[in-house]
């Protein structure tokens, strides 16, 4: 599918980050992604360079990517 094909998800999804973000950006990512409707857990594993998002209600993947985009965090393909 294409990059902006609708992709709602529930459960846990991992996003591999291209460059490890600094502490401030990690906190912002966790706060802003955590605030998305449906997201029940969000954590950046800095050592692994991974964003972990758990959704109990459907969340659109593009909304998570938009937050990362705004905070200048690139997601590895």
């Amino acid at each position: 599918m294409m990059r902006n094909t609708p992709r709602a998800f529930v459960g846990t999804v991992m996003f591999r980050l291209e460059d490890p973000p600094d502490v401030g950006v990690c906190e912002a990512v966790e706060r802003q992604v955590g605030d998305l409707p449906g997201v029940s857990f969000c954590d950046v594993d800095e050592a692994a360079g991974v964003l972990i998002v758990t959704a109990r209600e459907p969340v659109e993947r593009a909304e998570v990517l938009a937050v990362l985009d705004r905070l200048d965090c690139r997601v590895a393909q």
Partner: peptide, 11 residues
């Protein structure tokens, strides 16, 4: 299958 997957907004 993939068009179906893109057509839904939840499980």
């Amino acid at each position: 299958a993939w068009h179906l997957a893109a057509s839904v907004d939840g499980p």
